[in-house]
Amino acid sequence: MIVVFGSINMDLVARVRTIARPGETVLSRRADSFYGGKGANQAVAAARIGRGGPAAVAMAGAVGADPFGSACLDNLRDNGVDVEAVRILDEPTGCAFITVDESGENAITVASGANMAVRATDMPEQLLARASVLVLQMEVPVAESLEVARRARRSGAVVVWNFAPVPAIEDHAHLVELLAATDVLVVNEHEAISVAEALGEAVAGEYLKAAGVLARSYGPVCIATAGARGAVAVNPDGTQIHAATRPITPVDTTGAGDTFVGVLANGLAEGLEVGEAMQRACLAASHACLTAGAQAGMPLRHELEKARAQG
């Protein structure tokens, strides 16, 4: 089983010609609502790709007692995600405000709401004991995620930690603890550099150098994603595995990284080697960019198999 501990949001999306700069106002014809939150996105990606496979998906997190929260729970259930460990709190459901420009790039502001009230004690021991893979992000309190990661490792689960968005962690020792509790670290180019520099490492703005330092010095397999250039996994011994994306013209890149993480987790839960799981995740992330919204384009298993067959 894959267990995701993380955020659940409603995304409000406006398409614009260009993303607003500081102090600038831009107009959009309309705003649309989509289901989101990095935790929920990753759970949905894993559940969709897992349909017809052996790895079930469960989510632990929190929503508000409001219409957004009810809708988010229904959406998770509809996608095959177990939500028994999602609490309903007297806090507003998390909400993300997203602008997407004509090239498909995005800018995101998140109002965390109930996500900041998530606690490690919300994770039932019996659920964690069933997990072969635990997936974490950085949109719920970091200390709570760290406690869940430690518990998961004690029970034998593989911990996949997506360091996004990179938090302001000033305590060097705390960051080292996070990496020590992680089996597979997933970061994009900018996140890799930010984490390495927060640890005092000199990486000269090079994301592959940063990924190498994180893997060799701190222990996890570090997977660095680089958009259309694919992804690279760096092992603690310094060896690298490369995976390519499918050439596409993106409609919306929102959720592509979460698709990658969820499909990667599914691959690991199904016993794939990191390289094969990463290649499948890259293809799924490409597919997700063809549809607007964080979750709408996440592929089902048969859709991804068709895309793989087409090369």
Rank of each mutant, 00 (worst) to 15 (best):
H172L: 11
A277I: 10
F260Q: 12
G104C: 13
G311V: 12
M116T: 09
A96I: 02
A192Q: 02
A285L: 01
N266I: 13
R130E: 15
V186H: 08
V184C: 13
A129L: 06
G52H: 08
A62W: 00
N75Q: 13
E197Q: 12
A181T: 08
A85V: 03
V133M: 10
E206M: 10
V4M: 07
A211G: 06
A211V: 04
I248C: 14
F260P: 05
G230T: 11
T245W: 04
F34D: 00
P247C: 07
P167Q: 06
R301C: 14
L214Q: 05
G53N: 04
Y218S: 02
S7P: 01
G262D: 12
L199F: 13
F260L: 15
G311R: 12
V140G: 08
V110Q: 06
F97G: 00
R280D: 11
A181C: 01
R229Q: 14
A226T: 10
V274K: 14
R229C: 08
A226L: 11
S155I: 01
H172A: 13
T18K: 09
L199S: 09
D82S: 03
C282N: 05
A164D: 08
A285N: 00
D11L: 04
V63I: 10
H287E: 11
L89S: 02
G219I: 06
A215P: 13
R301N: 15
A288W: 06
V63Q: 06
V195W: 04
S7I: 02
L178T: 04
Q240H: 09
A120M: 00
G37S: 02
G80A: 08
A233D: 12
G61I: 09
A294F: 06
R17F: 07
L264F: 04
A157K: 02
K209L: 13
F34H: 01
T99D: 10
A45C: 03
P250R: 10
P220Q: 04
T259S: 15
A277C: 14
A56H: 11
E276F: 11
A120N: 04
V4P: 00
A129V: 01
L268H: 00
A62S: 00
G80C: 10
F260S: 07
C222E: 07
G275S: 09
G64I: 01
V159H: 02
H242W: 07
A284S: 11
G52I: 02
N75A: 10
P92Q: 05
V86G: 12
L27M: 15
N79L: 11
G80Q: 03
V13T: 00
A296S: 15
N41Q: 03
A46M: 00
I223V: 15
E177L: 01
D78M: 12
S217C: 15
W161Y: 11
V142E: 10
L304Y: 08
